[in-house]
C-alpha cells in the first residue's frame, strides 16, 4: 500500500481504489462504508466471530481489527471470490449443502474455508475444525459447514 498523508491506495478485488481516511480505521469499515463493499460483515469488532474475514494476498485476515494503514497486499472479499454467475468451488459447495440459515456469518465462513483449502486441499475433520472454529455461527450451521468444506475440497481437487 502506498500512502500519501491520509490518501491511500487500496487494491480490492482487482480494482484500485483511493481512499482518504485515518490510518487506524479498520479495513472492514473502509470496505463497507467508504467503498460500499458489504460482503464482509461486522459482527463483533474484536476478531471473535470471523464474519469480516477477507483475504490479503491470499491470507485469511479479520478485517475488523486490521487498521487500513497496515494492509500489506491485495484485498479479496467474498465479492471477488466468486459471483452468482461464476461461483467459486467453496460457494458452489455451500449452495449444494444449503449451509446458510440467516447467512450473516457465511461470507466469513466461506472466505476462511477458501483460504484454508488453498493450503490443505484434502483436510480431515480435525483440520477442518482447526481452520474454521474461529468463525462463529449463531444459527448452528456447523454440521453443514463441515460437509460443504469436504465437498468443496473434492471439487477443487477435481475429484
Amino acid at each position: 500500500m502506498n500512502e500519501t498523508g491520509n490518501h491511500m491506495q487500496l487494491k480490492v478485488n482487482g480494482k484500485e481504489h483511493e481512499v482518504e481516511v485515518e490510518e487506524d480505521m479498520p479495513l472492514l469499515w473502509v470496505l463497507r462504508d467508504e467503498l460500499g463493499i458489504t460482503g464482509p460483515k461486522y459482527g463483533c469488532g474484536i476478531t471473535a466471530c470471523g464474519a469480516c474475514t477477507v483475504h490479503i494476498d491470499g491470507m485469511a485476515i479479520r478485517s475488523c481489527s486490521m487498521p487500513v494503514g497496515d494492509v500489506f497486499g491485495e484485498v479479496t472479499t467474498i465479492e471477488g471470490l466468486g459471483t452468482p454467475d461464476a461461483l467459486h468451488a467453496v460457494q458452489a459447495a455451500w449452495i449444494e449443502h444449503q449451509v446458510a440459515q440467516c447467512g450473516y456469518c457465511q461470507s466469513g465462513q466461506i472466505m476462511a474455508a477458501a483460504a484454508f483449502l488453498e493450503v490443505n486441499p484434502d483436510p480431515d475433520d480435525e483440520a477442518i475444525d482447526r481452520a474454521l472454529s474461529a468463525n462463529l455461527c449463531r444459527c448452528g450451521t456447523y454440521v453443514r459447514v463441515r460437509e460443504a468444506v469436504k465437498t468443496a475440497a473434492a471439487k477443487l481437487r477435481g475429484v
Binding site: 485469511a60 479479520r62 487498521p67 484454508f116 488453498e118 490443505n120
Partner: peptide, 18 residues
C-alpha cells in the same frame, strides 16, 4: 496453522477495542 495463522487476528498493534 493452515491459514488460521496468529496473524489472521493478531495485527501489528494492540486492538484499541476492549
Amino acid at each position: 496453522i493452515e491459514f488460521v495463522q496468529c496473524g489472521t487476528c493478531h495485527g501489528r498493534e494492540n486492538s484499541p477495542t476492549p
